[in-house]
Simulated assay, not measured.
Amino acid sequence: MTSSFFIFGAGYSAKAFAAERSDPAVGIYGTTRSREKFGALRRAGIEPFLFDGNVLSPELLARLKQATHLIVSIAPDESGDPVLAATRDAIAHLVPGLRWIGYLSTVGVYGDHDGGWVDETSECRPVSRRSVLRVSAEREWLSLGQETGLPVAVLRLSGIYGPGRNAFVNLRNGTAKRLIKPGQVFNRIHVADIAGALWHLAERNKDGIFNITDDLPAPPQDVVTYAADRMGVEPPPEIPFASAQLSPMARSFYGENKRVSNAAIKGTGYRFRFPDYRSAFDAMWAEGDWAGEGENDARSPMKRR
């Protein structure tokens, strides 16, 4: 039976996933809230459907019934997980060919561990409300897997970057900052490795929880400095975190400090294409695709140093 992937929340990561399709016979379908995004999804190789977060249209339900794999990339809200609420009965009774479910979550569920290492067995002690909701959604999807006998893989993602979303773009746009908070580190993940991990787990019907993250937790200012060096431009000045002007959400990210292990996904045989930001930035700069779709071979208009 030819595989058919249905993605709830076909955004940046879903487009990268579609780009990694090796068999053109494999169908990839995905939802968006806006019909204006249909063209971009089709160009990415994803057949689009509207989903308002509440009701499955007859067309969407008909396609969902044919799915062999389900990927969920929509965040929960205060009412719970909208995809689970809309599809639970369908998954249990109307999708006979479904073989695997992948749920995209976040390493934010671990909360703050004072810079220490965490893995999938570590305690979840989320700080932000959005991460609290993620923990609940993870448990519900894993519970549905137990009820239905379907393998469910929870992919906990660290900070996502890739073409169009990276420090090169921020430097070009003049929005890059070097915030200094002593001892602060973050993990990251190139979008191509989210796509790669999804294909790897789906093709093997793997279940469980997996951190999808790089090998190099690092201070955020180091990433900006490295990108500026590759571009040949001056990095922005250092700004003490205490005096930085940040949105409440941006500031909340700095309230969580941890180093995230990726040993579990490696244990399944997956090998990261970009194990750290340096190798990824080197590749994006060399290939000229750092600026994103439609801007290949981009070069910075900024004054070189």
Rank of each mutant, 00 (worst) to 15 (best):
residue 24 P to F: 15
residue 122 S to Y: 02
residue 11 G to W: 07
residue 80 G to E: 12
residue 265 I to V: 15
residue 90 A to G: 11
residue 25 A to Q: 14
residue 201 L to V: 07
residue 183 G to T: 04
residue 118 V to I: 08
residue 135 V to T: 13
residue 285 W to S: 09
residue 185 V to L: 06
residue 32 T to A: 03
residue 182 P to R: 03
residue 192 A to K: 12
residue 295 E to N: 12
residue 301 P to I: 03
residue 253 F to S: 02
residue 89 D to G: 06
residue 143 S to Q: 15
residue 12 Y to K: 11
residue 293 E to S: 13
residue 186 F to I: 15
residue 66 Q to H: 10
residue 112 D to V: 07
residue 270 Y to C: 00
residue 252 S to N: 01
residue 40 A to G: 11
residue 68 T to L: 02
residue 49 F to P: 09
residue 204 R to Y: 07
residue 133 L to C: 11
residue 207 D to M: 11
residue 101 I to N: 11
residue 106 T to N: 07
residue 4 S to F: 05
residue 224 V to A: 05
residue 8 F to N: 03
residue 177 K to V: 15
residue 200 H to L: 03
residue 201 L to P: 01
residue 170 N to I: 00
residue 301 P to A: 01
residue 106 T to P: 00
residue 228 A to K: 02
residue 67 A to F: 10
residue 282 D to F: 06
residue 185 V to G: 09
residue 17 F to M: 10
residue 8 F to M: 11
residue 71 I to Y: 04
residue 185 V to P: 13
residue 227 A to F: 04
residue 122 S to N: 03
residue 223 V to D: 01
residue 1 M to V: 11
residue 23 D to E: 13
residue 162 G to N: 12
residue 31 T to V: 10
residue 211 N to Y: 06
residue 108 G to A: 08
residue 227 A to H: 05
residue 251 R to C: 03
residue 130 R to Y: 04
residue 78 E to K: 11
residue 251 R to D: 02
residue 253 F to M: 05
residue 49 F to K: 05
residue 206 K to N: 08
residue 193 D to V: 05
residue 103 Y to Q: 11
residue 94 L to D: 15
residue 121 T to D: 07
residue 66 Q to A: 14
residue 221 Q to A: 09
residue 247 S to L: 08
residue 162 G to D: 13
residue 187 N to H: 03
residue 294 G to K: 13
residue 146 Q to K: 15
residue 194 I to V: 15
residue 230 R to A: 02
residue 113 H to R: 13
residue 148 T to D: 09
residue 292 G to Y: 05
residue 221 Q to N: 10
residue 277 Y to S: 06
residue 37 K to C: 07
residue 78 E to D: 15
residue 246 L to T: 07
residue 183 G to M: 00
residue 172 R to W: 01
residue 83 V to P: 09
residue 110 Y to H: 06
residue 72 V to C: 03
residue 10 A to F: 02
residue 275 P to T: 13
residue 137 A to I: 00
residue 298 A to Q: 04
residue 92 A to R: 13
residue 47 E to Y: 01
residue 158 S to Q: 05
residue 106 T to S: 14
residue 87 T to M: 12
residue 123 E to Q: 12
residue 190 H to P: 08
residue 236 P to V: 07
residue 68 T to E: 10
residue 198 L to A: 11
residue 117 W to T: 00
residue 287 E to D: 15
residue 58 P to S: 09
residue 180 I to H: 06
residue 91 I to H: 08
residue 160 I to G: 01
residue 285 W to G: 05
residue 60 L to A: 10
residue 135 V to E: 09
residue 271 R to K: 12
residue 261 S to V: 00
residue 33 R to D: 01
residue 208 G to R: 06
residue 243 S to C: 00
residue 239 I to Q: 07
residue 225 T to S: 13
residue 209 I to T: 12
residue 227 A to W: 02
residue 30 G to M: 08
residue 6 F to L: 15
residue 233 V to T: 01
residue 260 V to Y: 04
residue 49 F to E: 04
residue 201 L to H: 05
residue 121 T to F: 02
residue 3 S to H: 15
residue 192 A to L: 15
residue 201 L to Q: 03
residue 61 L to D: 11
residue 128 S to H: 02
residue 208 G to K: 05
residue 221 Q to E: 14
residue 290 W to T: 03
residue 121 T to N: 05
residue 196 G to M: 08
residue 23 D to K: 09
residue 300 S to E: 01
residue 218 A to S: 14
residue 195 A to C: 09
residue 155 L to T: 09
residue 158 S to Y: 00
residue 159 G to C: 10
residue 274 F to K: 11
residue 145 G to F: 13
residue 282 D to C: 09
residue 2 T to I: 13
residue 95 V to R: 02
